[in-house]
Design a binder for these strands. Structure first.
Lengths: 342, 342
DNA sequence: CTAAGCGGGACATAATACGTCTCAGTTAGG
DNA sequence: CCTAACTGAGACGTATTATGTCCCGCTTAG
């Protein structure tokens, strides 16, 4: 027996299209509210008039409200949108995609949000929302959560919301300075996340370039040593995955590091480690904090990365065999499946 | 979490209307195929042009085909329609109605088809289809199925289809001549059903008016006696329910019988028995065949009756306490609930 | 042989959707 | 304090679609 949705797909395909359109409007509005018609129409790449018809309808349905500052979802709209998410994933076949990816990559869970973060930047925020959603499914009281840097993780931080069962949760950066820009540093993101979640955080300040002696004396420093112990015991890790070359360049690595990365055919990067196509570590940024081995003791590892351009990197990283939940987007998911199964 | 349908009702309020319209078109087409646009539009009480739009759409979806003889459902259309049935019942609240009726009438199962056979005659065929559907859920090989007469049962016969697990099944008329017209006699219907099911049948020829002596000698006749035994052992009974007065008149009963029926306030009739409002037998047509007591030994009794005008009769009959599956229509179901629960 | 029923084509009209522009009010940033 | 950018709302002509109402050539049952 087919599902109701698949019956409807045959009997009312045009209706499902409309449904999708309205869903997209609501979803985009949630991301940008409060916002006006013209800007929203622009984001959705539809004309103002079309959006206007939809918006008028949705307003009449009590799902959104107009005000002089722009439109915003009502309580009911938020609720509906939340309930709609799994349905629309099934409609657009993302459900199916998730299953196939889980199989192909041999990992416990995959979550895909619609869109491609290469083309449309706000998809990162949707991934962030999804990642936060997954996180919330776990027991979080008095837990240590280690996070990395990167624009994707910044998206996760944006979408963090406080909740009662995050009492006593502590956010820490996974590893010390990796040479990122301030807004994408693990420290910054860690602090932002904790602030949004209304919980505590600890920061790890490590200068970028450090002599061996200074390094040794630093990790013996009481405050640092304590924190390092906490970080290494983190039960939950949320991290991004990057392309090796891009990351090396963004971090202004020295020429010989870039050369090494190139010669060893590194394709992926995650929390300071560089991996080749087979998932083998080919380079490691020397800094203190969480090490690859520590991941095996973590109960929950969430990897967040999207955009078709990152497909190869995601694939390579997951070949390490780390049992990680993957939160990605449609663009990356499709590219991954084309690369692996074909 | 709300159901998909209630989410859709918020997001596409007119969807259910469209869905219902297309469903009705398919359902009516199944009943009347092959048929042309104009006749079909007439049956559905919509204009030709509107039907035409729907039909064109459904054709494009591969659910029906056009030919010079008229339109007909494709394999896929049949399949979809079948799967759609429970969904639409839920949508139109018939699901709910069934539950309430089951409770109110204290019987094991109730099936309701949309419509009212008082207004639209083809609803009888839908009841027929439903009854056949219920029947098929039972183990039928080498079983004896007793059937009665009446226009409703004629509808059941129309919808009978052969199936592999009806091998060795034997159809018999429940009771001898009750004075009906030929096309509505139990014998005729019995034969038709068996022919449609590709199985065997036996007929019971009993003259309408019979002296006591002739009656006695008839039931001693070897062929008749054998058959009577078979009939009385029937494990499955399918019968209609009629209004007492209407039935008495249609059968051209004698005046004193009609008087008796009237004086005893008979309201319902089933296989030759007349019942008052409390479900008590007030008159019985004298003929051979299945008796009321025999019903208690049957494993499956299916009563088929619809139309709001028959509500009182159905209610009265079911008060006998016979554990019967009821197949009825929306009109009768609503009238029943108004009569009993209010 | 004929009358009824079939699908398909056609067309004017009504209803709806859409693109485009205007306007007055609000607000954020200089 | 001012202005530039943004807000919702209104308006209006034009496509596009939906609908009612024909007609035509064909097949088929009676």
């Amino acid at each position: 027996m087919r599902s109701l949705l698949s019956l409807q797909q045959k009997l009312l395909p045009d209706m499902l299209e409309v449904m999708n359109k309205r869903y997209r409007v609501l979803r985009q509005l949630r991301l940008m509210q409060p916002i006006g018609r013209r800007s929203l129409a622009n984001s959705l790449d539809i004309t103002e008039r079309v959006l206007r018809s939809e918006v008028t309808f949705l307003k009449d349905q009590g799902l959104l409200e107009m005000s002089i500052q722009g439109m915003h979802l009502t309580e009911e709209g938020e609720q509906l949108l939340m309930e709609l998410e799994p349905v629309m994933n099934e409609v657009s076949g993302l459900d199916n995609l998730e299953e196939r990816l889980k199989e192909a990559l041999n990992i416990p869970e995959v979550f895909i949000v619609p869109g491609d973060s290469d083309d449309t930047p706000w998809v990162k925020k949707e991934m962030g929302r999804a990642a936060v959603g997954r996180l919330k499914k776990f027991q979080l009281t008095r837990r240590v959560i280690a996070v990395t840097g990167g624009t994707t993780l910044a998206g996760v931080a944006d979408m963090m919301i406080p909740s009662s069962d995050m009492e006593g949760t502590l956010f820490v950066p996974a590893r010390g300075g990796l040479g990122e820009q301030v807004e994408n540093q693990a420290n910054t993101i860690c602090a932002k996340m904790a602030r949004k979640a209304h919980t505590d955080y600890r920061l790890l300040h490590v200068p970028d370039q450090l002599s061996e002696e200074a390094y040794q004396s630093l990790i013996e420093e009481p405050g640092v040593k304590d924190l390092l112990g906490i970080i290494k015991s983190a039960g939950i890790v949320i991290h991004g995955i990057g392309e090796a070359k891009t990351m090396a360049q963004r971090r202004k690595s020295t020429l010989d590091v870039i050369d090494k990365i190139e010669q060893e055919h590194a394709v992926a990067e995650a929390f300071g480690y560089y991996f080749n196509q087979s998932g083998e570590v080919v380079h490691k940024v020397k800094t203190i904090g969480l090490q690859l081995e520590d991941l095996e003791r973590s109960e929950l590892v969430i990897a967040v990365a999207g955009g078709r351009s990152k497909a190869k990197a995601i694939e390579a990283y997951l070949k390490t065999g780390i049992q990680s939940i993957l939160v990605t987007d449609e663009g990356a998911a499709k590219a991954l499946l084309e690369g692996t199964s074909l």
